[in-house]
């Protein structure tokens, strides 16, 4: 066999152990490696390229880590050919996985400090491993808060996990939706409305923000207005990715290859780039 492109462009086979519906168009997939040991351990915020036979690949954040004592979980929204094919897979189907790629949420650097997690919509998926990690090492962190906004009550992700977290005494968890019928009984409004009532020390806190870019911009602005430092506020950016190894050119934002130096960035690194429209 002759030489080809780097080995890492060949996926590893993973069997779909379980698939369940989270919301109308969002599914979670639990995957287990077939045969060999599986891919290297990932860090919160990283992503894998998931491959559906005959259709292609999509970059999907890891939303559940095997290190936490469970299968590899990816939460996928069915918006295009590949993601639809992934969401239509059935237990036993073999998918391709390669990774993990990208930068991760700096959970180590946040030790000893307050942690504020701000999530919008499906942005909660790449942040769930942060919550899992922080809860598993709860005494290493000071105050921990999660505020989460979704479109409607039916679009709230990981509802049972949210309720579990919310019932703890050592976590501040608040959820809101953009609109609701009367049965909701919870907050209605934008996620940034929840920030004023989050107690944290702006001089010694780390914030992790993930969601649609508009939502992230306003949430970051509110955090900075309150006094947080742009070096301590981290965002996860979305760009078109095809190779995930910084060679296909699609994910560029200015000089950054988002699949390599990102998708998680401290806000101070990307704020000048985000400020230029359509960059």
């Amino acid at each position: 066999m002759g030489p080809g492109v780097a080995e890492r462009l060949v996926p590893s086979p993973y069997a779909l152990a379980e698939i369940w519906r989270e919301t109308a168009d969002v599914w979670s997939l639990a995957l287990e490696p077939r045969g060999r040991d599986g891919l290297p351990a990932a860090a919160p915020g990283q992503f894998n390229m998931l491959y559906a036979f005959g259709v292609g690949e999509a970059p999907i954040s890891i939303s559940g880590m095997p290190e936490g004592g469970g299968p590899l979980v990816h939460t996928v929204r069915a918006v295009g050919n590949v993601t639809r094919a992934l969401c239509e897979a059935r237990p036993g189907d073999v998918l391709g996985v390669r990774g993990p790629y990208g930068s991760s949420w700096p959970v180590e650097a946040a030790r000893g400090r307050d942690v504020v997690v701000v999530a919008g919509g499906i942005g909660l998926a790449p942040l769930r491993p942060v919550l899992t990690h922080v809860i598993a090492h709860r005494d290493e962190y000071r105050r921990v808060a999660l505020v989460y906004g979704a479109r409607t009550p039916a679009d709230v992700l990981y509802r049972s996990a949210l309720e579990r977290w919310r019932s703890r005494f050592d976590l501040h968890v608040d959820v809101t939706v953009d609109s609701a019928g009367r049965g909701w009984g919870g907050n209605v409004g934008h996620v940034t409305d929840l920030l004023p009532s989050v107690p944290f020390d702006v001089a010694d806190a780390v914030a992790f923000v993930c969601g649609p870019e508009i939502m992230m911009r306003f949430a970051v602005r509110d955090l900075l207005d309150r006094g947080a430092s742009p070096a301590d506020v981290h965002v996860s950016l979305e760009r078109n990715m095809k190779c995930a190894v910084g060679l296909c050119g699609h994910c560029q934002l200015g000089a950054e290859f988002v699949c390599r130096s990102g998708p998680v960035y401290p806000y101070e690194r990307v704020s000048p780039l985000l400020g230029v429209r359509e960059l």
Partner: peptide, 18 residues
């Protein structure tokens, strides 16, 4: 309705729309 048209996390599919 920022969550309405939102993404699968970390980017879109490699061969979407082809």
């Amino acid at each position: 309705d920022v969550y309405g048209e939102e993404r699968a996390p970390a980017g879109a599919a490699a061969t979407e729309e082809r």
